[in-house]
């Protein structure tokens, strides 16, 4: 009985002492085990009732226990009282640390970075072009005839009769093809301008990423494969998609790509205008007329091209309802990304 108690009290002591962290804890522990009515003293009381034959063995065992636990108790007590007097009273660990401000890239840059890295992984280069463009690069070489209603699709800021602020990043496709022979595979991110009244839904400038791939045997099927791969990497692998016929002067056939609205999962909501679909990009096979302008043989080479707006992607992704917030540059907005 007493033998069992000795073992139990030893175990309980070692458990209790683990959680001792202050002078107050030390005192409580002392009272529990070593005071006159403490558990250790109680064991010696109990020894009196033990049968004679067992007394020497248990007495020895009890002494060993007392020596062991009291030595350890003293050690812990010493450590706690010294650390208290040296440090705990002096340093307030709860005061805040020094604040460091780490800057951040604009959310549109971050969105573009993500798009860029996916297309770089698919073998695309990245190219740049000017924002102040000629009519030739922005329209004519992209198969927009003069006086054609297709030009109305893009409200244009003009600086002179022949020069304008580019309305899309597609002119960089021409600039790239002028510089090199096929194969050409590149994306062209950049800033574009539209002469549209500024509102929550539209701004006079925004950002696009265009892409082009020209080689022998490039097909519409490959266009679909590549863009579906992009969309799945960017929006999630379980998305549904569709390609709808559309019209762009520089592609034929042309398409718009829709994905299932990721806010309502296709059920229909305010963002997708109850259609369940979100239009994410325009695309198509490069029109042979465009190849004529850059002296590519359209019998030998085929290609696809695509373009998407970065603001729209970021608006949808973060649930932003007013496009102007991107260009207000309110630090309280910029800091969030």
């Amino acid at each position: 009985m007493l033998d069992k108690n000795i073992t139990e009290i030893k175990e309980s002591f070692y458990t209790d002492i683990k959680s001792v962290s202050s002078i107050k804890d030390v005192e409580e522990l002392r009272i529990k085990y070593f005071s006159r009515n403490g558990l250790v003293s109680q064991l010696f009381e109990d020894l009196k009732d033990v049968v004679k034959e067992e007394k020497p063995i248990l007495g020895k065992k009890l002494n060993l226990l007392r020596n062991e636990v009291s030595a350890y108790f003293e050690e812990v007590k010493e450590r706690i009282s010294s650390s208290n007097s040296n440090k705990e009273n002096k340093i307030d660990l709860t005061l805040p640390g020094k604040e460091f401000i780490v800057g951040s890239k604009h959310i549109l840059t971050q969105t573009l970075d993500e798009i860029k890295s996916i297309f770089k992984g698919l073998g695309f280069s990245v190219a740049n072009g000017p924002e102040l463009e000629s009519d030739y690069y922005n329209f004519e070489s992209l198969n927009f005839p003069a006086d054609h209603p297709a030009r109305d699709m893009q409200d244009t800021f003009f600086v002179s009769k022949e020069f304008l602020l580019r309305t899309h990043t597609t002119p960089v496709q021409i600039r790239l093809m002028e510089k090199q022979a096929p194969p050409v595979r590149a994306i062209m991110p950049g800033r574009v301008y539209r002469n549209e009244a500024v509102s929550a839904r539209s701004y006079c400038m925004f950002h696009q990423v265009d892409g082009i791939y020209v080689d022998t045997d490039v097909t519409f099927a490959e266009l679909k494969g590549t863009l579906v791969s992009f969309a799945k990497q960017f929006y999630g692998s379980d998305l549904k998609y569709r390609f709808r016929p559309s019209f762009f002067p520089f592609t034929e056939p042309s398409a718009e790509m829709d994905i299932t609205c990721y806010l309502c999962h296709g059920k229909g909501c305010k963002i997708c205008k109850n259609s369940g679909w979100l239009e994410i990009l325009g695309c198509g096979m490069v029109d042979p007329n465009v190849f004529k302008f850059v002296n590519y043989d359209s019998e030998k080479y085929t290609g696809y091209a695509f373009g998407m707006g970065i603001e729209r992607i970021a608006l949808l992704k973060y649930g932003i309802t007013d496009i102007r917030i991107f260009f207000d540059n309110d630090l309280r907005f910029l800091k969030q990304f």
Partner: peptide
């Protein structure tokens, strides 16, 4: 350049060129 600027504590803005 963007990496370096942000590491130095700068926030990127995009202003209207018009």
């Amino acid at each position: 350049i963007r990496q370096t600027a942000t590491a130095l504590g700068f926030f990127e803005m995009i202003n209207n060129p018009l």
